[in-house]
Simulated scan of single mutants.
Amino acid sequence: MFLKGEGNVNSQEIARLDDILQQHDYNSTLLIAIMQDIQKVYHYLPEEALCYIARKLNLSEAKIYGVATFYENFSLEPKGKYVIKICDGTACHVRKSVPILEEFRGMLGLSKEKTTTDDMLFTVETVSCLGACGLAPVCTVNDHVHPSMTPDKARALIEELKEEAANEN
């Protein structure tokens, strides 16, 4: 994991970033794909990683940050291992997505202001639409769609994810 301050990027992280850059042939026209791959690894775009790829791709840091802040899918803030997105579009909202959101937040001790658990296991966000209106109400966990959600299903999903995380350690 990245330490604060660009000077503290360790050799393991540099090797990981170099692997991603190499997979894209250090091609600056593939910047978005490179940033997507970095975000897959860290669940956000660490400042140190962005500064490093800017140097390696001969791009300004301003250009890199411009791309990172333009696209809504990129995050400059650390996120949990499991990113839960609850749809609050019209179809989901009228089919009671708010109680599902409240259940996730309640179980995880989160709020509108605090979206990530202290152990960095869960991040809960709302989105305007997930494009699965026929399956409403919907949430995703790391982009895997969970249709016809209810507060009970939300509780079971959290328990399942906690168990999965415990088994990985």
Rank of each mutant, 00 (worst) to 15 (best):
C129N: 08
D88N: 13
G131P: 02
V94T: 15
P137Q: 07
L130C: 10
C87I: 09
I86Q: 14
I84P: 07
T117H: 11
E125G: 00
D118Q: 13
G109W: 08
L108R: 12
A136I: 10
L130Y: 03
H93C: 04
M107F: 04
F122D: 06
G106D: 09
G89A: 13
Y82Q: 06
I100F: 04
M107V: 11
E113S: 14
L135I: 00
T117F: 11
K114M: 04
R105F: 01
G109S: 09
A91L: 12
H93Q: 12
C87H: 03
V124R: 08
G134C: 05
M120C: 11
C87R: 08
L135G: 02
V83F: 10
G134F: 03
D119L: 10
L121Y: 00
C87N: 10
L135K: 13
A136Q: 04
L110F: 09
E102F: 02
L110V: 04
E113Q: 15
M120F: 10
T117S: 13
P137E: 02
E102S: 02
I86Y: 02
P99A: 11
E103H: 12
I86P: 04
E113P: 00
Y82C: 03
S111R: 08
M107C: 11
S111C: 06
A91H: 09
K85H: 05
R95T: 04
A91E: 12
G106Y: 14
E125A: 09
G89R: 03
C92F: 09
L121P: 00
R95P: 00
T117Q: 13
A132W: 03
K114C: 01
T123K: 10
L101P: 06
E125I: 01
T116S: 14
A132I: 01
T116E: 10
T123M: 06
I100T: 11
H93W: 00
G134L: 08
S111V: 03
K114E: 06
L108D: 01
I100R: 01
L110N: 13
V94C: 09
K112V: 07
D118I: 04
T90V: 10
G134Y: 04
K96Q: 14
E125T: 05
C92Q: 05
G109C: 12
L121A: 12
A136V: 08
E113D: 14
M107S: 05
A136P: 11
K85Q: 15
I84R: 08
Y82S: 02
M107T: 03
S97M: 05
G106P: 11
D119H: 10
M107G: 14
E103T: 15
D88S: 10
H93V: 01
G109V: 05
H93A: 12
M107K: 14
K96T: 01
T116D: 06
H93G: 00
K114T: 01
E102Y: 07
M120L: 14
R95Q: 15
F104Q: 06
I86L: 15
I100V: 15
K85S: 13
P137L: 11
M120N: 15
G89H: 06
K96F: 06
L121K: 09
D118T: 13
T116W: 08
I100D: 04
K85G: 01
S128H: 12
V138M: 10
V138Y: 07
V94G: 05
D118V: 13
C92L: 07
S97A: 15
L121R: 07
V83Y: 01
T90Q: 07
K112W: 03
G134K: 13
S97C: 14
